[in-house]
Design a protein around this nucleic acid. Structure first.
Lengths: 325, 325
DNA sequence: TTGTATGCGTTATCAA
DNA sequence: TTGATAACGCATACAA
């Protein structure tokens, strides 16, 4: 692997000159530039970006810490991050906390992984990444989870209560409002809800969106139509059975994620109730499986790809204003 | 950010001594070691891994090039890679080619992305990764796709015909053999197949496994039971309809992936044929949606996580033997 | 046991 | 327009 010195020697110029033609910022005569360029070509020179990083104190690399790369939301967010990063000449150093396997998919224990974060963050920061993006497994307040580093950080699919922290999330309220309105617009009048766990922010926001949509359309809110689930398939199934045994039976079920929606569909199925002929079921998240269900599920797509792009766009803009003069 | 020089100054020792206690390879008196350690603690010193990499010509970073991070197989492979990498003190520089969006999910055009690979590889190699892992979107020969770099590379979920190239894949033949035998053991005698595209290696291998299992169990091979699909849902649906209209109707369908299996299940459903009471449907891949189907699908789980681990295990062992004496 | 000094491959200042 | 040279932060050969 030739370095800048080898090029300089072969071209009978100084390393400085080679660097000048490489970075094109300082004026070099056409003649020497051409000669240097040719040598570079000949020797198939490739710059050592590690040396460059050391000198410039900038790695053009951002650290992406994802709580679990196998979580359904992670891939698309990473995809979005990578798309914009590549465009802007940044690389991605990926760190995976693997919380799902470590807590056996029991979401409420997600904070148990607290001890795993600091060493992971430290390692990645020592590699001199220019900034960090932290991607959660579900939207929640992660204040205190990530130790304070001296570099910019953007949270996605989670957030902190820090006033000067950046986070990128989708609008739960808006999404629920729109789903509900969609149901109303398509003629439904008795819209039941299978919620997520009650103390979670997404649950509250989605509920508020649902509630407001009812109000704005002059429908009466009936608490009996609200069943509390826990985000999992089983709770959707169970809640749906309860709802379907009510009279009058609701003509639509809004489940707060696709897992529970799938459970609800299966419950309808087991009672011989046809979806969507007899009842409509709407989910959230747009999990891959949704489109394979028969009958298939209507689901709110989460703008994950866009969130990834927005997260890194935010980070890079912070990086640029930070750069001293 | 304090560096080794700052520590040395505060502890009244040379930078060499600090380096010695940091790396613990050379003997340092207990007294100075303790003092240095304390200063390190006090000043919250963190080593600059970029400088270290430049000096050691080793970054402890491996480049993972994934054809598409949103492909169903990628997440688990990355998860496996990361697990072992972390254990061994390696970081992961992730590059995403995004072929799926770029070729609009038309797998057979995957090689169209040929032009995208070299610049991506060059960039990552210039960052001085110690080795590469290339993760495909479907198992196939990718010879010539990746330009020859001077560093070790391991292929996963794809392979090359190069004799000295490493690749990690699952055994299609074995998987198909086992699925077929499972069906035979559970009493099925007329086992139909919905294959993938015919010129693909996985299709051939899976077919051979199926064929051999029939033979080993003294069942007669009937070509009429083989329908050619194209890996997509629709082809599974269509092929299943053809099979279900035959007489006698097969008592089991082995679909070569879960997409087509889901299509087959839906076809059964539409004809009022009950799965698994009237007919069994078995898929491949263990896609997330499989367990949500009603009736649910039996499917061969692909050892993706294990493949990821094996890929990096291979890479690191090559790295170690390569390291000069 | 500890220190001095050099170099890893760049960039960029200053002088020529 | 070009070149000599000093950093960047670290590891290590060699000397003391």
């Amino acid at each position: 692997m030739p370095n800048i010195k080898d090029i300089a020697a072969r071209a009978n110029v100084s390393t400085a000159t080679v660097s000048y033609v490489l970075n094109g910022k300082k004026s070099v005569s056409e003649k020497t530039r051409a000669r240097v360029l040719q040598i570079i070509e000949e020797m198939n020179y490739q710059p050592n970006l590690v040396a460059k990083s050391l000198k410039l104190k900038r790695t053009q690399t951002i650290g992406v810490i994802v709580e679990d790369v196998t979580s359904f939301n992670s891939s698309e967010i990473i995809d979005g991050i990578h798309e914009y990063a590549e465009e802007q000449g940044f690389s991605i150093l990926l760190t995976n906390i693997r919380v799902l396997k470590r807590i056996d998919h029991f979401y409420s224990k997600a904070d148990r992984v607290k001890e795993l974060i600091p060493p992971a963050v430290k390692e990645i920061v020592n590699k001199q990444v220019d900034g960090l993006i932290y991607v959660g497994v579900h939207p929640r307040d992660v204040t205190g989870l990530i130790p304070d580093m001296q570099i910019p950080i953007v949270y996605s699919y989670c957030y902190t209560n820090g006033a000067d922290d950046y986070s990128v999330n989708y609008d739960d309220y808006q999404a629920a409002y729109e789903s509900t309105e969609y149901l109303i617009r398509t003629g439904h009048k008795t819209i039941a809800v299978i919620s997520g766990v009650m103390n979670s922010v997404p649950t509250k926001d989605r509920f508020n969106g649902y509630y407001q949509a009812l109000n704005d359309n002059n429908l009466i809110f009936d608490p009996a139509l609200i069943k509390t689930g826990d985000w999992e398939y089983e709770s959707g199934h169970r809640s749906a059975l309860e709802l379907l045994n009510m009279s009058p039976c609701p003509d639509a079920i809004l489940a707060m994620n696709d897992n529970m929606a799938a459970g609800a569909v299966s419950a309808c199925h087991s009672l011989g109730i046809k979806v969507p002929d007899d009842i409509s079921v709407v989910g959230f998240d747009d999990r891959e499986f949704s489109s394979y269900l028969t009958p298939s599920l209507t689901t709110m797509r989460l703008p994950l790809h866009e969130m990834g792009i927005e997260a890194i766009r935010t980070l890079i803009s912070v990086l640029n204003e930070d750069s001293p003069v």
